[in-house]
Amino acid sequence: MPARLRLADPVAVREALGRVAAGGEESDRADLRLLVKHFLAVLESRAPGASVEVRVPPYAAVQVIPGVRHTRGTPPAVVEMDALTWVGLAGGELSWGDAVGSGRVSASGERTDLAPYLPLHQPG
């Protein structure tokens, strides 16, 4: 079983969110890595399971959502997106429907609708 991701320090998350919001596409990779891993850890805690693999390359991937456990090979249910999309979804700046509809999220298989779990962070 892969190691679970750890939550980041709340102050570090708030500061990284501010820098990412100010920098957009030019955000520092360290900030994106911190936020991606932090928000994937939050998702893991809120949607424990192993039926859907959520990938945010090149930073991390987690298995979440209750259901049939995936153990080897290509998972039957995969959600994949870039880091800025994931941070936008987690922070509530982007809706799941808009992200999927615009092609910013690739989702295939059962239980890949993450809308019930989003957003993961409330500003403030």
Rank of each mutant, 00 (worst) to 15 (best):
3 A>S: 15
113 D>Q: 01
29 R>L: 13
107 A>G: 11
7 L>K: 06
66 P>W: 15
40 L>I: 00
69 R>F: 10
103 G>F: 09
89 L>T: 00
37 K>Y: 05
96 W>F: 04
92 G>T: 04
48 P>F: 07
6 R>V: 12
47 A>I: 06
46 R>D: 12
62 V>Q: 06
7 L>A: 10
3 A>G: 12
55 R>Q: 12
16 A>N: 13
91 G>V: 07
34 L>G: 01
81 M>W: 13
49 G>C: 02
113 D>T: 00
42 V>Q: 00
117 Y>D: 05
48 P>M: 06
98 D>F: 12
5 L>M: 08
14 R>S: 12
124 G>K: 01
4 R>A: 15
114 L>K: 00
51 S>P: 08
36 V>I: 04
124 G>I: 00
7 L>C: 01
43 L>C: 04
82 D>I: 00
4 R>I: 08
76 P>T: 02
67 G>M: 07
58 P>G: 03
64 V>Q: 07
98 D>T: 14
119 P>G: 05
7 L>W: 09
113 D>V: 04
91 G>D: 11
95 S>C: 05
100 V>F: 10
109 G>W: 04
71 T>Q: 14
39 F>A: 02
31 D>Y: 09
100 V>K: 03
83 A>T: 03
55 R>N: 08
106 S>T: 15
46 R>P: 09
66 P>T: 14
45 S>C: 03
59 Y>T: 02
53 E>S: 07
117 Y>N: 03
96 W>Y: 04
44 E>A: 02
